[in-house]
Design a protein around this nucleic acid. Sequence first.
DNA 1: AAAACGGGGGC
DNA 2: GCCCCAGTTTT
Length: 215
Amino acid sequence: MAIDAVIRGLRRTAPTWNPTALAVIATREGDPFRVLIACILSLRTQDTTTGPASDRLFAEAATPESMLKLTPRRIERLIYPVGFYRTKARVILGICHDLLDRFAGRVPDTIDDLLTLNGVGRKTANLVVTMGYGKPGICVDTHVHRISNRLGYVKTRHPEETEMALRAKLPRRHWIGYNDLLVSFGQNVCTPLSPRCSICPVSSLCRKVGVTKAR
DNA sequence: AAAACGGGGGC
DNA sequence: GCCCCAGTTTT
């Protein structure tokens, strides 16, 4: 499978696509703590309200220490209306506590250390590593997992297997743009149930996995 | 009104 | 593996 051909095809049409949650998080590039918190806010939400929400939160607290001075109620108010705002406020405080407790207030820079934080899974850990620390990382959310299967890249139900497969093909640089391109394609074109196959630049490669009615 | 949607934890 | 979490968006 010529992944490079796929990527080239996607890049041609990408400029007309709507921005993704990843693009919002990427504006925190170089600040691991902000990347981490923005990732938590974006979990299981499809909207772009996480951008303004994290802006409001960071205006009051942009470090673990200052975050812990906020009450859960205050954080809930600041991040509303993102989905799961109560759960996320609790998770954020738990993470901040843990960072001070076990990592001297610093956000870890390895996947394995990040995974020990409660509320951080493989997607978040990869994004912190690439966006926060500029190191190679591949973000496999459900979009990336789905399109990888449809394009015949992988044949698996397990996102972790997709992550390993894509990691082996990761380009030498520009990882943020690469991740965003894949997510963007899944969000804007190769959507879950009725993808917009008529405008898809790589439909000839598609296995149509899970497609009920193509547009 | 109902179904689709999206990461991670706990078991 | 399976179920749960809570709220918005799409059909």
